[in-house]
Write a protein that binds this DNA or RNA. Structure first.
Length: 275
DNA sequence: TTTTTTTCCTGACAGC
DNA sequence: TGCTGTCAGGAAAAAA
């Protein structure tokens, strides 16, 4: 479940390992992996392209090459590995192998096959790419005023709004729980019931928590384990998510786990105010 | 138009 | 041991 901090960690690691490498050969083994192109077309277009730069928008990872913008969404369990020798062909979860000019092999691994890739002719305006059509502003640019304006007519609960990538991009289930816990707002609160101060608090906590998680190289729980040999450490700083039955650090009441719109949600019913 | 539900996937795990 | 059922969950598509 890579959210923005995990994607940023992958980006940083790839930058160190394969920047300026040229892609010599592309092999895609899962036909649904390229979302906007056929497998063969995707393979041929990326071959012989040099990787110039990496970028991130929300949970999307981008590779800028000489002619194309190559965008990857890892979804649930997508991972990249860089190997010095050709990977084990018996590994049924490796869905793409990129042979590099450096002698390395960039491998895409995805147990549940949810991840997707997109390839477009290079553009100056990254946000205008079709795959970002329904993607809002990155969490790093989200202000309290913006969130306030975006929630005035919303009858949805605030947690669903935080998970909605068309509002703020980059927040997933783990950090949404942490943000609302830190902001002391009940995840079931109706979004339009929040006032300006609430929105300012949520925006501030979003930036603080996601930036701290980036510092810690992300969170390693359940399916998001190591990618590129990097183990995130932010799970040690989680206050609410996965803490069912544990004492709330503020009021010492037990953290509760509920289902909200089908998502596991952890919060403190005592000190997170419902609005 | 906005919101909710379903679908895509497979491994882990509980219960029998 | 082996089977069945449930759960995890991001986001697109379908339904309401």
């Amino acid at each position: 479940m890579p959210e923005a901090p995990e994607v940023q960690t992958v980006l940083t690691t790839l930058e160190k390992q394969i920047r300026n490498a040229r892609i010599e050969k592309v092999e895609i083994f899962h036909e649904k992996l390229p979302e906007n192109l056929g497998v063969h077309e995707f393979e041929k277009m990326l071959e012989n392209q040099k990787i110039l730069r990496f970028f991130r928008l929300g949970k999307y990872l981008g590779f800028e090459t000489e002619e194309y913008d190559w965008i990857v969404h890892l979804r649930m369990e997508g991972k990249f590995f860089v190997f010095d020798s050709y990977p084990d062909p018996k590994d049924k979860h490796i869905h793409a192998i990129f042979s590099l000019s450096t002698g390395q092999y960039l491998c895409y691994h995805d147990t549940r096959k949810f991840g997707r890739m997109y390839l477009y002719p290079k553009t100056e305006d990254i946000a205008s790419l079709p795959c970002f059509q329904n993607v809002g502003i990155d969490f790093s640019k989200a202000s309290g005023t913006y969130l306030f304006d975006r929630t005035r007519n919303s009858k949805r609960d605030i947690k669903s709004v935080l998970l909605d990538q068309s509002v703020i991009a980059g927040i997933g289930n783990i950090y949404a729980d942490e943000i609302l816990y830190a902001a002391r707002i009940d995840p079931r609160s109706i979004a339009s019931h929040l006032d300006r101060d609430d929105c300012e608090t949520i925006a501030a906590q979003t930036k603080r928590i996601l930036n701290e998680a980036i510092e810690a190289k992300g969170t390693t729980i359940r399916s998001y384990t190591s990618s590129l040999g990097v183990e995130g450490q932010y799970q040690q700083q989680l206050r609410a998510h996965t803490k069912e039955g544990k004492e709330c650090e503020q009021c010492h009441q037990p953290i509760q786990k509920i289902k909200l719109k089908g998502r596991s949600t952890y919060f403190c019913p005592e000190c997170q105010v419902r609005k």
